[in-house]
């Protein structure tokens, strides 16, 4: 969270609908470029090629007796066509968002979830949940030490009450 942006919204109070729309446009992160579209299109076409190879090995059948591979083949060919089309129209096909310096937060967030998943089968969910909560509060959420620690303790307790005590689910638990 960038504090200065949080305190002073860009452009102040808009007076008209048009200004408001323009302000939203300004606040949007920078758009990704045509290169991302080329890469996406190529990846999609590759997926299509893999799908075609897979479909052929499944048995294509005929139109009167379609086999297991008929439909995957149709979809895969469509993906190849669409992928190529996206590459060809990379400049006009609309853009997503550039990866920013903040994107590491997403990688870190995802890594914490995978770590949680790896641990849960071995030591139950409580400790991984506390670690995940603390990481998200302190590191990703910029919370203070105190509220992060309190949150990291409260959240597993609260989920224990719901999923173990109340719902009696089979979620692996240590305590």
């Amino acid at each position: 969270m960038t504090p200065d942006r949080a305190e002073t919204p860009v452009g102040g109070e808009p007076e008209s609908v048009e200004e408001l729309v323009a302000q939203w446009e300004d606040e949007k992160p920078p758009a990704s470029g045509p290169l991302t579209n080329v890469a996406t299109g190529a990846l999609v076409a590759l997926l299509g090629v893999a799908g075609v190879i897979g479909s052929r090995s499944l048995g294509l059948g005929s139109t009167s007796q379609p086999g297991p591979g008929t439909w995957p083949l149709v979809v895969s060919v469509a993906l190849i066509v669409l992928g190529v089309l996206l590459v060809a129209r990379a400049r006009t096909a609309g853009f997503g968002e550039k990866f920013s310096v903040d994107s590491w937060r997403v990688v870190a967030g995802l890594a914490s979830m995978i770590a949680f998943t790896l641990l849960i089968g071995n030591i139950g969910f409580e400790i991984p949940a506390a670690l995940l909560a603390f990481f998200w509060l302190k590191v990703l959420g910029n919370e203070g030490w105190r509220s992060s620690a309190v949150g990291a303790v409260l959240m597993p307790v609260f989920f224990y009450l719901i999923f173990v005590t109340l719902l009696k689910t089979n979620i692996p638990h240590y305590f």
């Binding site: 969270m1 504090p3 949080a6 910029n142 919370e143 203070g144 105190r146 509220s147 309190v150 949150g151 409260l154 609260f158 009450l161 719901i162 999923f163 109340l166 719902l167 009696k168 689910t169 089979n170």
Partner: peptide, 30 residues
């Protein structure tokens, strides 16, 4: 970032109670 820690914690507890009430209705012994 101007919110005081106590207010934040109270809000946290509020969310917790709400989610608890919500999940309590899942019912069923799995």
């Amino acid at each position: 970032m101007t919110t005081s820690p106590t207010r934040r914690l109270r809000a946290l507890a509020g969310v917790a109670v709400l989610a608890l009430g919500l999940s309590a209705c899942g019912g069923g012994n799995l």
